[in-house]
C-alpha cells in the first residue's frame, strides 16, 4: 500500500463540490487492493469520469506513478478547478476537461483508455433532480440511482482499450448484479473488489474487464437468447454475502 495515498490532503474545497466521503475512500481502497495488478497492467491512458474533489484521480496518479497520462472530467466547473488544485498540491498531473461524462472525447479517445475510474451519482432521486448544476450533479441518480450510470456504461465501453479496465462504485439500490449482467452482454467479466456497509449505504466497488470467455458467452447468449447458468451462478455468488459484512469494513479479493 502506498503510504502517500493515505496522506491526500484536502487543500481546496468549494461549497458546490462534493468532498471525499466513504464512497470515494472505498474506490481508492479498491485501487490500492488492485495496485499490483495495475502496476503490471502499465496503463498508458487513465480517465476519471466525474472527478469531484480530485481525491480519486490524485490517488490513482500516486498509486501508478508518472508512467501514464491522466485525464479527468466533471460537469461541474468548480469541481475541475478543485481537482486541479488537489493534483498540484500532490505533485501529479491530470488533464482536466469540464464536460458531461466524456462528451467531446468520445470520437478520438475511443478504444484508447486502459483504466477508467468512476464514482457516479448513484443516489436514487426523482428524475428531475438529475443533471442539475452544482453539487447535486455529484449524487442525483434518478430512478434506482441508475440514470447517469446507464449513460456512463456505453461511454466506458466505447473508450476502453482491448485491455481496458473499469472501476465503478455502485450502491445496492442500483442493482449491481443487473449492471454486471448488462456488461457481461457487452463482453465484460466483473468482480467486486470491495464491499462496504456504512451507516446509510451499502456500497460495492466493481471492476470490469474485457474477457474472451465472456465474449464467447455473449455469442452463446445471442444464439440461445438465455443467460448460461454458470454466468448467473458466478454473478449471484458475489452478491448475497453483504449482510455478513456488517461491521467489517472491507473485503478485498
Amino acid at each position: 500500500m502506498s503510504p502517500r495515498t493515505a496522506q491526500i490532503r484536502l487543500v481546496s474545497s468549494h461549497r458546490e463540490v462534493y468532498e471525499p466521503c466513504d464512497d470515494s475512500f472505498a474506490l481508492v481502497d479498491a485501487l490500492l487492493a488492485d495496485q499490483a495488478n495495475l502496476l503490471r497492467h502499465q496503463p498508458k491512458l487513465c480517465l476519471e469520469l466525474g472527478c469531484g474533489s480530485g481525491y480519486v484521480i490524485t490517488s490513482l496518479a500516486l498509486i501508478l506513478g508518472k508512467e501514464g497520462h491522466y485525464i479527468a472530467t466533471d460537469i461541474n466547473p468548480h469541481a475541475v478547478r478543485v481537482t486541479q488544485e488537489t493534483l498540484e498540491a500532490h505533485g501529479v498531473h491530470a488533464e482536466l476537461i469540464n464536460t458531461n461524462i466524456a462528451s467531446g472525447l468520445e470520437t478520438r479517445l475511443a478504444g484508447l483508455v486502459d483504466v477508467i475510474v468512476v464514482n457516479p451519482p448513484y443516489v436514487p432521486t426523482p428524475e428531475d433532480e438529475v443533471g442539475r448544476e452544482g453539487i447535486a450533479s455529484a449524487w442525483a441518480g434518478g430512478e434506482n440511482g441508475r440514470a447517469v450510470i446507464d449513460k456512463i456504461l456505453p461511454v466506458a465501453d466505447n473508450l476502453l482499450s482491448e485491455k481496458g479496465w473499469l472501476y465503478m462504485v455502485t450502491l445496492s439500490e442500483n442493482n449491481p448484479s443487473e449492471i454486471c449482467l448488462q456488461m457481461r452482454e457487452k463482453g465484460y467479466a466483473s468482480r467486486i473488489l470491495v464491499q462496504r456497509l456504512t451507516d446509510e449505504e451499502s456500497l460495492q466497488i466493481i471492476k470490469f474487464w474485457r474477457d474472451f470467455d465472456s465474449q464467447l458467452e455473449e455469442k452463446e447468449m445471442a444464439e440461445n437468447k438465455t443467460v448460461p447458468s454458470r454466468v448467473m451462478e458466478s454473478l449471484l455468488s458475489q452478491f448475497p454475502r453483504m449482510p455478513f459484512l456488517r461491521g467489517n469494513n472491507s473485503n478485498s479479493s
Partner: peptide
Amino acid sequence: SKGIPNMLL
C-alpha cells in the same frame, strides 16, 4: 480558462 477547456453545451 486556467488551462481547462469548457466543453459544456
